[in-house]
Write a protein that binds this DNA or RNA. Structure first.
Lengths: 330, 330
DNA sequence: ATGAAAGCGCTAACAC
DNA sequence: GTGTTAGCGCTTTCAT
């Protein structure tokens, strides 16, 4: 590896001139520029990010922490982040934690040791206290999740209202026995969606039955098992609202296996409007989030935080909408 | 941010002692250790990776380049990589390129400017020449893909044989009109799978019909459109082999829409055995790859390359297997 | 327009 | 066991 020193020697200029060649080429004479260019090409020189970052104390890198990349929902959000980051000279580095606290703490070292300038969290396994402490010391923001009153900014949808509207849609369809499959994590979104579910029923004069509420993983299997549980009830529900498309598909899968005609008397709604929802037969009605915008705004928020680290983070809500497909009659 | 100097001052020791506290605590006296520990805690000191990496000229980071995280196939491969990396003190940084050459070249800067120690590619948009040049200068390996004769090592399955076996299975089922939906990228895997498809037919005395071969994206829609094309043929195929589960599902989806009984006279096989294949109705028969092992071995290969950068990379083939579900009769 | 030199935070000889 | 010090590769004043 060539160093700036070697380039300077080869070009017959000082290291400062070489540095300027990369950072302020305008203030070099044409002559100097030529000499440096030649030396650079000849030696195959590429400036070391380590030297530069050590000196400037910024890496121009943003860490994105997500539980798993297997959720297709994240893909477009990430694209939004990438574009916004690139536009501002930053790069996105993605890290999956598997929802594991230890793994997450491990990744966070990149924040502590200044390997990255900041981080955006899709969700976190950190406790409330831990996250707050982190947010005070380092530039971090949340995307798609929101810990109430955190110093970190966040961009998300109104999960409570989105869930409310999904359930209300089922009620409008004439359902009165509406079940709910939640995730068993402690994410704010899960709590809020359950709140929305309960409020929709209550406001429409329908009592909430605890046997209609299930909690499990974000997976297909959780949907299958939940359906079987519901089906075994003396009064099985006629509609299910699930907090993820994969869960919803599990429900639909199990229902169809039992011969229940999904979309004709038995309705299912999912969440996130992933490609799954469109690909499945029947297509799954689902709550869509503005994915790309979520990503863009999250990065924008983080960049702002770089500028003014003292200010407490903003909270931005983006609009959601219900995408209606065949898994609900209508 | 506290620096090692401040810690040394606070602890009343030299910076060397503080450094040793982190890198060789064993050779410190208990006394020194205590003093340093206190100072570290008090100042909330965390060693800068920049300073350290600049000095040691290694970052202990591995870049993973993939086209998109939306393919659920990658998730478990990445897990394998992470585990193997962590075991050896390395971290994995993931970057999606969207299959875009410019984006990929952008990420590669992290290799050039020594922000990471090496990279593993799932696939690359680089030309053969570009990739070879890269592989000579930097430690890189390929995972799940393999550019014939590259200096970079690779770990993959025998795509040609896997495709051969999938098609042979269809032939054994009695099909003689077997179609093929490929991806239109230039990945080696695509070329090899097509080779396997052709060989299977030929070796079983069945002429290859070009109208039975389609190329498009890795997506659902490609499957749908391909089916429609096939169905419009005077002699429509009775079986389809697709190089991705998402494509296979598109085929099945379109077939069921037309009332074709998939799994009963009309068979479809996918590739990668993603969660999609299991979740769909009917379940999709698919070629499974040993995902976690692919990831582990890829990282192991890269670590080896760090050790002996001069040696040309190994080529490792891992076993595949056909997972039979309801989309093929039997 | 260019160069000299200090210093970013750290590790690793080397000396004691 | 501990300290001194050079130097990793770079940017950026401050001169000129």
């Amino acid at each position: 590896m060539a160093t700036i020193k070697q380039v300077a020697a080869a070009a017959g200029v000082s290291v400062a001139t070489v540095s300027r060649y990369f950072n302020a080429p305008g203030q070099l004479s044409e002559q100097a520029r030529d000499k440096v260019r030649q030396a650079v090409e000849q030696l195959g020189y590429y400036p070391s990010s380590l030297g530069r970052s050590l000196r400037t104390s910024q890496t121009k890198k943003i860490l994105v922490i997500l539980p798993t990349i297997s959720n297709p929902f994240y893909s477009r959000v990430l694209t939004g982040m990438e574009e916004e980051a690139e536009k501002n000279g930053y790069s996105i580095l993605t890290c999956a934690t598997g929802g594991d606290l230890l793994s997450e703490e491990n990744k966070l070292k990149m924040l502590y040791d200044r390997f990255v300038d900041g981080a955006v969290f899709f969700s976190t396994s950190l406790s409330r206290r831990q996250f707050d402490r982190l947010a005070v010391e380092y530039p971090v923001v949340q995307c798609c999740e929101y810990l109430e009153g955190s110093v970190a900014g966040a961009v998300t949808i109104d999960n409570e209202q989105a869930a409310y509207e999904a359930v209300e849609y089922l009620l409008r369809l004439g359902h009165t026995r509406v079940a709910f499959v939640n995730s068993d994590n402690r994410f704010e979104s899960s709590i809020l969606r359950e709140k929305g579910y309960r409020r929709a029923l209550t406001e429409h004069g329908i009592p909430v039955r605890e046997e209609y509420i299930r909690r499990g993983t974000y997976g297909f299997r959780n949907g299958e098992e939940s359906f079987r549980h519901f089906a075994s009830l003396p009064e099985p529900p006629t509609a299910v609202f699930a907090v993820a498309d994969s869960i919803a598909i599990g429900v639909v899968h199990a229902a169809l296996e039992r011969g229940l005609p999904v979309g004709k008397g038995f309705s299912v709604i999912g969440f996130d409007d992933t490609s799954l929802a469109r690909m499945y037969r029947p297509g799954i009605t689902s709550v869509a989030q503005p994915r790309k915008e979520l990503g863009e705004q999250a990065v924008r928020l983080l960049l702002k935080r770089f500028q003014s680290p003292q200010k407490s983070g903003e909270l931005i809500f983006l609009p959601h909408r219900l995408v209606i497909r065949e898994s609900t009659e209508g």
